[in-house]
Design a protein around this nucleic acid. Structure first.
Length: 504
RNA sequence: GGCUGGGUAGCUCAGCUGGUUAGAGCACGGCACUCAUAAUGCCGGGGUCGCGGGUUCGAGUCCCGCCCCAGCUACCA
C-alpha cells in the first residue's frame, strides 16, 4: 500500500465563528483530497483547531466559562460547519488533545537531542499591553498605542525566553525551496518567500512566561510553548508522532494555508523539521482571500457575509462550486450574492442541470432509458476526451477555476452538439443509427460531467451519477474512458432547481 | 521607502518565448429550434490593451520613465 496522500489545512483560532474565509480554505483542501480519492489514491485529510492562544483565554473569560469548555464549544461549531460543507476530513486535530502535547514534547526533545544548541535562553523585548496581557507587534501598534487599548500606555518589557536558532537553517531552507524539494505555490508566494529568505532569518523566541494556557516547554518550569510554534507541530502530531507508524503518513504532501501565514509554513516550519531531522512537506499551497465588496472578510472584522446565509442560498454544493469557480484558490476574489445567484442560474441550473435533464429525457423518451450500445458519435467524443484531459491537467496544478471552466466548456460543447445533431429530428425520420450514436455520446458527456463534479459538488455529483446507474464511489476512469453502452438511466429530479419566485 | 504581483470589452478574466482584422464567459440586442429547469444554439453591438517615450519591418506582448491598485516588509494563524 502506497503512503496516503496527506493533506492538511491550517488549524483555526478558537476565538470566533467560522466564516467564508475559513470555508474557502477547507473546501479547497477538500477538493484536493477528493480529487486524489477520485483517482483511487489513498488519502489522509486533516483539519482542526488551534486552541492555545492568549485570545482564547480572554474569549473564555468574556463568556464566563473555562478555556476548555470554550474550545470544546468552538471546536464543535467549526467541525459542524465543515460537515455541512461536506468536508471529508479523516481526522480532527485539536491542539488541546493529549496526543498533540505528546507530539510537541517529543518533537522538541528530538530537536534538543540532535542539535543541543538549537534552543537557547535569551531575552525577548517587546511592547507589552497590559490591557491585552500580551506583547504587540508593530502592525498592532498605531501612534505608539495598542489599537485595542488606546487609552493605556504600552510598556517596554523584557522577558527570559527560549529562542530557536532559526537563522542557522536559512541556507538549507532556501536550498530546498529553490531546488523544488519543497514546493511553494502559487508563484507569487514562492517569490515572496524567496525574498524573505534571501534577506536572512533571525532567531525567534518560542516560549512565553505568564501564559498558563499552553503546553509546558520541556526543561522549563514556568514557560509554555509559544502558540504558533506549537501550532505548526500539529501536522506532525496528527500522524501519531512519536508513536510507531507515524512515518506511514509523514511527510505531508501539501499544507493548505492562507497567504497570510505562508511565512510560518515556508520558513519556520521547514527549519523546525530540519532541526528535528524529519522530512519536509512536499508542498505548501497558499490560497488568497475571500473579499466582500473588495474588502477582506476577516476573522477580526466579522463583517460581511454569514456562512449560514451563504450555505442556505443555494445549498452547500453550490457554495463550494461558487467559491472555487469565482474566487478560486490562488488570488483574492470577491463574493457577492448577485454574482452567486447569476453563476448559479447560468452555470449550474441552466448549464449542468438543464443539460442533464434534456439528455436523460431523450434517452428515456427515445430509447426507453437504455443507453444505446453502438459507437458514440465521434463529433462529441473527441470533445469529451479533450475536456477530460484539460480538466485533469488543471486539477493536478490546483487550478480549480480552470478545471471548472473545462466543465463548463464541455456543457457548452454538448449543448451545441444537440442542436447540430437534433435527435428529435432523427427520431422522426427514423434514423436509428445516427440517433443511437448521438444519445450514447451525450450520455457519456453527462457521465464525464458527473465525474468532474465529484470533487467540487459531491452530493450533486452522486445524484447525477446515480441517475446514470453509477452508484457508489465515483471513479476517474469513468471520465477517462466513459462507457455507458447498455446502461439503464433515469431522469433525475432537477439537480439545480431555480428558486421559486416566492422564495427569492 | 524597499520588494512582489497586477492594471486588456459594462463585469470576471485568457492572451506562451513580439507577427495576419485583440479572445472567452457573464450581461445586452436580434434570429432559430423544441429534447430540456421559458432551458439551448447561432449571429451581433461593444475595447485609445493604465499614461508617455523608445527598440523593431512590426508591440497588449521587449526596454526606460510615470500614475493607480493589491500583497509582503519577521514572533497578529
Amino acid at each position: 500500500m502506497s503512503k496516503p496522500f496527506y493533506v492538511t489545512t491550517a488549524i483555526d483560532y478558537s476565538n470566533g465563528d467560522p466564516h467564508l474565509g475559513h470555508a474557502l480554505e477547507k473546501v479547497g483542501a477538500d477538493v484536493i483530497a477528493r480529487w486524489h480519492r477520485l483517482q483511487g489514491h489513498p488519502v489522509h485529510f486533516v483539519m482542526g483547531m488551534d486552541e492555545h492562544a492568549q485570545k482564547v483565554l480572554q474569549a473564555a473569560e468574556a463568556a464566563d466559562t473555562t478555556p476548555q469548555q470554550w474550545v470544546d464549544r468552538m471546536s464543535a461549531r467549526f467541525e459542524q460547519a465543515w460537515q455541512v460543507l461536506e468536508c471529508s476530513h479523516d481526522d480532527w486535530m485539536r491542539t488541546t488533545q493529549p496526543r498533540h502535547a505528546e507530539g510537541v514534547k517529543a518533537l522538541i526533545a528530538r530537536i534538543q537531542a540532535r542539535h543541543p544548541d538549537a534552543f537557547y535562553e535569551g531575552e525577548y523585548e517587546g511592547l507589552y499591553c497590559v490591557g491585552c496581557e500580551e506583547f504587540k507587534s508593530e502592525s498592532q501598534v498605531v501612534d505608539g498605542r495598542c489599537v485595542e487599548h488606546p487609552s493605556r500606555d504600552l510598556v517596554p518589557t523584557r522577558e527570559r525566553n527560549t529562542f530557536f536558532r532559526l537563522s542557522a537553517w536559512r541556507d538549507e531552507v532556501l536550498r530546498r525551496i529553490t531546488s523544488g524539494e519543497l514546493v511553494v505555490a502559487p508563484d507569487i508566494r514562492r517569490n515572496e518567500i524567496l525574498r524573505v529568505l534571501e534577506g536572512g532569518l533571525i532567531d525567534i523566541s518560542v516560549s512565553r512566561s505568564r501564559l498558563p494556557w499552553g503546553i509546558p516547554f520541556p526543561g522549563t518550569d514556568d514557560q509554555t510553548v509559544y502558540v504558533w510554534f506549537e501550532a505548526l507541530m500539529n501536522y506532525v502530531s496528527a500522524t501519531g508522532f512519536p508513536e510507531a507508524d507515524w512515518e506511514s503518513l509523514w511527510p505531508a504532501d501539501v499544507h493548505v494555508v492562507g497567504k497570510g501565514i505562508t511565512r510560518f509554513h515556508c520558513c519556520i516550519w521547514p527549519a523546525i523539521l530540519l532541526a528535528a531531522g524529519l522530512p519536509l512537506p512536499r508542498a505548501v499551497w497558499a490560497h488568497g482571500y475571500v473579499q466582500w465588496d473588495g474588502a477582506k472578510v476577516s476573522k477580526s472584522e466579522g463583517t460581511g457575509v454569514s456562512l449560514a446565509d451563504a450555505i442556505n442560498r443555494h445549498g452547500p454544493d453550490a457554495l463550494r462550486y461558487f467559491l472555487l469557480r469565482e474566487i478560486g484558490f490562488t488570488a483574492d476574489g470577491d463574493f457577492s450574492f448577485d454574482r452567486f445567484d447569476a453563476v448559479y442560474a447560468s452555470e449550474l441550473a441552466d448549464g449542468v442541470g438543464n443539460l442533464a435533464s434534456r439528455v436523460l429525457a431523450m434517452v428515456v423518451k427515445y430509447r426507453d432509458g437504455i443507453v444505446p450500445s453502438g459507437d458514440a458519435d465521434p463529433g462529441l467524443s473527441d470533445g469529451i476526451r479533450a475536456a477530460a484531459a484539460h480538466y485533469r491537467q488543471a486539477m493536478d496544478a490546483t487550478e480549480f477555476k480552470r478545471a471548472l471552466e473545462e466543465l463548463g466548456s464541455l456543457v457548452r460543447v454538448a449543448n451545441a452538439f444537440i442542436t447540430t445533431a437534433a435527435p428529435w429530428t432523427l427520431a422522426k425520420t427514423g434514423d436509428d443509427v445516427a440517433l443511437d450514436r448521438a444519445l450514447r455520446a451525450l450520455s457519456e458527456a453527462v457521465l464525464v460531467i458527473g465525474v468532474m463534479m465529484a470533487p467540487f459538488m459531491p452530493e450533486k455529483s452522486a445524484a447525477l451519477l446515480a441517475a446514470l446507474g453509477r452508484d457508489g464511489t465515483p471513479a476517474w476512469r469513468d471520465a477517462d474512458a466513459p462507457d455507458l453502452g447498455g446502461a439503464r438511466v433515469a431522469k433525475p429530479d432537477n439537480l439545480f432547481p431555480k428558486d421559486p419566485p416566492a422564495a427569492a
